[in-house]
Computed example of a mutant assay.
Amino acid sequence: MSQSVSCNSCAYYEDHVANSTKVAEHAGLCRFNPPVTQPEPNARGLWPVVTASDWCGHFSETRN
C-alpha cells in the first residue's frame, strides 16, 4: 500500500492521543466511524485505534 493513502495522510486520522491521554507511538484514532461500544453497560465508547501505516477504503485527503 502506498504511504500516500495510509492513515497518517487521511483527513480522519488523529495522531496525538489514543483513547487514554497517552501519546501512542505510530498510532492514532480513526475519526471516520463512531466510537466502538464496550462490553460493560456503563463504559464509554472508544474511537478505533489504528497505526499510521494502516489503510482502509474510507481514505480521504479532505473531510467530506
Results as ranks from 00 to 15, higher is better:
Met1Tyr: 06
Gln3Asn: 06
Ser4Arg: 10
Val5Asp: 09
Ser6Leu: 07
Ser6His: 05
Ser6Met: 10
Cys7Leu: 03
Ser9Pro: 03
Ser9Tyr: 02
Ser9Met: 14
Cys10Tyr: 01
Cys10Pro: 01
Cys10Val: 01
Tyr12Lys: 10
Tyr12Glu: 11
Tyr12Val: 00
Tyr13Ile: 03
Tyr13Thr: 01
Val17Lys: 02
Val17Trp: 08
Ala18Lys: 02
Asn19Arg: 00
Ser20Phe: 13
Thr21Arg: 15
Lys22Met: 15
Lys22Gly: 06
Val23Arg: 13
Ala24Leu: 12
Ala24Phe: 12
Glu25Asn: 08
Glu25Ile: 14
His26Asn: 15
His26Ile: 05
Ala27Phe: 02
Ala27Gly: 06
Ala27Cys: 15
Gly28Phe: 08
Leu29His: 00
Leu29Glu: 12
Cys30Asn: 00
Asn33Thr: 13
Pro35His: 03
Val36His: 03
Thr37Met: 14
Thr37Asn: 11
Gln38Ile: 04
Pro39Trp: 01
Pro39Glu: 11
Pro41Trp: 11
Pro41Lys: 07
Pro41Gln: 10
Asn42Glu: 15
Ala43Leu: 05
Arg44His: 15
Arg44Tyr: 08
Leu46Ser: 14
Leu46Cys: 03
Val49Thr: 15
Val49Asp: 04
Val50Ala: 09
Thr51Asp: 13
Asp54Trp: 04
Asp54Cys: 08
Trp55Ala: 01
Trp55Ser: 05
Cys56Leu: 10
Cys56Ile: 00
Gly57Cys: 00
His58Asn: 12
His58Pro: 05
Ser60Trp: 04
Glu61Tyr: 03
Thr62His: 07
Thr62Gln: 07
Asn64Glu: 13
